[in-house]
Amino acid sequence: MCKYRRVRNVYTQCGHGVNLPEVEINCELDNCVFSARHPEDCQGEACRNRCWQYHQYPEQYSPNINTLCPACQAAGGAQ
């Protein structure tokens, strides 16, 4: 089933966090209404009974990056 990926980079040298744009991960299954492979003619009650009608829980990542955040790097040091 299709889901979203949420990433928040945490920069350890300044302690700031930066959210990246949310990305939809396509499952490529024909029984998911959000998939690129979902048939166009699958609609109505049959579709509601057969196909996933909602996204799965989002993948969430929060990597620690051992540098300054982009704003602090642009300012020339930790803020």
Rank of each mutant, 00 (worst) to 15 (best):
T12L: 13
R48Y: 01
Y54S: 14
C42I: 04
S62C: 14
E22W: 08
C27D: 03
G44E: 10
N31I: 04
E22I: 15
A78R: 09
C2V: 01
E28N: 06
A36V: 11
Q73P: 02
N49V: 03
Y61N: 09
W52T: 07
E22N: 13
R37Y: 12
C2F: 02
S62I: 07
V23W: 01
Q53S: 05
R6I: 10
H55K: 11
P21L: 08
Q53C: 12
I25S: 06
E24M: 15
C27V: 13
L20C: 02
I25E: 13
C32N: 10
G15M: 07
A71G: 06
Y4V: 02
Y57E: 15
I25T: 10
Q73R: 08
E45Q: 15
G15L: 09
E45C: 09
A75W: 06
G76R: 05
R5D: 00
D41C: 02
K3E: 06
Y61F: 14
Q73H: 03
Y54M: 12
G44D: 07
L20I: 04
G17P: 01
C72N: 00
N26V: 06
L68F: 10
Y4K: 10
P58R: 00
N49H: 12
E24R: 15
Q56T: 10
I25V: 15
L68T: 00
C51F: 02
A78N: 00
V18A: 05
G77C: 02
V18K: 03
Q73T: 07
E40F: 11
C69D: 05
T12G: 05
A36C: 08
V23D: 09
N31S: 13
P70V: 05
C27W: 06
Q56M: 11
I25R: 03
K3R: 15
R6A: 03
Y11N: 02
V18F: 00
F34P: 01
E28R: 13
N19F: 03
R37D: 15
Y11F: 15
R37S: 10
T67P: 05
V33Y: 05
T12P: 00
E22D: 15
C69I: 08
P70H: 10
D30V: 07
V18W: 00
C27K: 02
Q60R: 15
Y57P: 00
L68D: 00
Q60A: 00
M1A: 14
N9V: 04
Y54G: 03
Y57G: 12
N19G: 05
R8W: 03
G17Q: 09
E40N: 12
Y61C: 09
C27G: 12
S62E: 11
E40G: 10
C2H: 02
S62V: 09
N66S: 14
